[in-house]
Amino acid sequence: MRKGFDKFIEKAIFACGLLAIVFVALIFIFLLIEGGSFFKEFSFLSFLSGKYWYPTSTPAQFGILALIAGSFVVTLGATVVAVPLGVMAALYIAEVAPAGIKDILKSGVELLAAIPSVVIGFIGMVTIVPLIRTTFNLSTGLSAFSGALMLAFMAMPTIVSISEDAIRAVPWAYKEGALALGATKWQTMYRIVIPAALPGIIAAVMLGIGRVIGETMAVMMITGNAAAIPQSLFDPVRTMTATIAAEMGETVKESSHYHALFAIGLVLFIITFTINFIADTYLRKVKK
């Protein structure tokens, strides 16, 4: 009887092991079916390159170029801010900070990761947004720039913790060699440690970008939600994620609008899938 139970549970374990594949496939298939029916009526090309997103006017227009541009600007801004700062913090935590402080800093980063995105969005609305409006004398502080700043902050835990792992994984022997030659700790860090940890840092950056592109609530609350191609960093923008989140509640189920939002989901899925695939390739290098 015990043997029978063992067999049964081992089958269950195997089945659960396969579930991750099943879910990824299911998500993809769902997006493909629901999003795909949008392309029966509208062309894929005009969807991607259309400048106008007027889903409720007649005739409705479903061009997501402005949304892609919105996501792109916000993501780019956030990456430019987050990557150098995040990597520097990772260096400090991994190589410079004294042991006791290290734990506190790491817990701090982990706390940041735990703060819900809607809370960060809310805090951004009441702090960063007015600050930016007055500093740059704008009509509204709800802009790509505010969004990028908040997102940079939100990407920090991912970038810091994965870079830190990569930096710590650099074999001690590498550093010892340089230090023995009389190099200072800092010289060793930027000549030896950073190059050696580079694949891991790239992976960290990719995963950080993935997180930023997928972020929904905070961008929706901070970036102003104007579906137009931004002329400057201080224009309000609307991202792909925010569009789905803001509009899905109001669509008629099975309408073109409904399917168009799934099609945006499909685009997002493909983008993040690619990014994660690249990140994973680099992480694999680290392990070797």
Partner: peptide, 18 residues
């Protein structure tokens, strides 16, 4: 399986909503 897990972790939360 491992690749699926990595990608599942990267799917944007709003896509899970969809």
């Amino acid at each position: 399986i491992k690749l699926s897990i990595v990608n599942l972790a990267g799917v944007p939360s709003v896509v899970y909503g969809l």
